[in-house]
Design a protein around this nucleic acid. Structure first.
Lengths: 194, 194
DNA sequence: AGAAAAAGAATGAACGTTCATTTTTACATA
DNA sequence: TATGTAAAAATGAACGTTCATTCTTTTTCT
């Protein structure tokens, strides 16, 4: 009697192939057959791991989002000061977006198109809680502007997505100095001005 | 002898239908047949106005981008002070992104996916020159941080795209107060701090 | 040997595009 | 102003292809 033993490697290869092909060609131009070929697998095999194409891309999104937030908070400790904590998280996010370009590109594409189910999108949002907690503390201490978290995110975190995209496209290359400037701008836009 | 008289209305209807369908379903799920139906036109007619589907979406992108920048600079006068000029342009852009939501959504989708040809994308960038000129002047006067224009754009303009998207999704509703806060954050992030 | 996993070929639907034809238009002639 | 006509514009049906998915068979594993 055989055991249920679907290979996690095969699943990961499929997820990876999905990211790469969707990044380069867009969702509309990445057929299941190509994904299968890139993952060295028969098209039929995909359906042992995923219900259908939509499920494959939803699961890929959730996987990448989880990796993103795990990376972002890996070295964060809630006992840090607000300013130190924010700088740490911001720089981890910047690292991820600029170095794990493939993953970040994929997220940007998902977050700006209807290619992902609403439900999967919802699932991806939750993981940001530690940052929201930090901001709540910062507002209480009078260090962070008393604004909606959406505005704080829009001004301090989201610009990194834009920089990642133009960097990937080759229009612009971010060096260490740019990154420090970017951090200062992010912090300027959310800290209470004295 | 008949005159070449393809109806501009029909072309516009096709462009409008493309925007609406791509916004709601994504590029991969908007067939030519649906675009034709929404524009009250036969599928074959599309090919009198556009070479193919790619050409249709490229032209739609360029149209919308032109409308966007035209709106942004409509009331701007290069003789204004840097701060006044920036506030004016910023608020026009905010207006466009938040009120002409359909158009702005479409641009966001195009700018974050490979659905547009590089060449069409290039064509869309040029129109931003007046803002770049304003920033150049601001840097010379020591009012604007001496940073790359890409960074200035990422921090002062791009956040509006994010706010537009979450507003469209119903997660968040921007009122006048938020908008003023958003402007202050934008200005904070690019002005030289004294 | 037996059961799960994987494969390749097959299927039917959907798509972008084209074709053959009809309808509309502009205008020359009466 | 009315009519004929030729070319452009528009159409619905059809074409060939591609795609997601399934079916049947083969391979792998215990």
């Amino acid at each position: 009697m055989a055991k249920l033993q679907k290979s996690i490697d095969k699943r990961n290869a499929l997820v990876k192939a999905t990211i790469e092909l969707v990044n380069n060609n867009g969702f509309h131009a990445t057929p299941m057959s190509k994904i299968a070929k890139m993952a060295n697998v028969s098209p039929a095999t995909i359906y042992l791991y995923f219900e259908n194409k939509q499920d494959l891309v939803n699961q890929t999104y959730i996987d990448v989002k989880a990796e993103y937030t795990k990376y972002a908070f890996a070295t964060y400790d809630p006992k840090m000061s607000v300013e130190a904590g924010f700088e740490l998280i911001w720089k981890r996010i910047a690292d991820f977006k600029l170095k794990e370009c493939e993953n970040a590109m994929f997220l940007a594409q998902c977050d700006n198109t209807p290619m992902i189910d609403d439900q999967s999108r919802q699932q991806g949002i939750m993981h940001l809680q530690p940052l929201l907690d930090l901001w709540a503390r910062g507002k209480k201490e009078g260090i962070i502007k008393p604004m909606s978290d959406y505005l704080l995110y829009a001004y301090s975190i989201n610009p990194l997505s834009f920089l990642m995209i133009i960097q990937k496209r080759g229009d612009f290359q971010l060096d260490e100095r740019h990154l420090e400037e970017a951090y200062q701008s992010a912090w300027s836009s959310i800290k209470v001005c004295q």
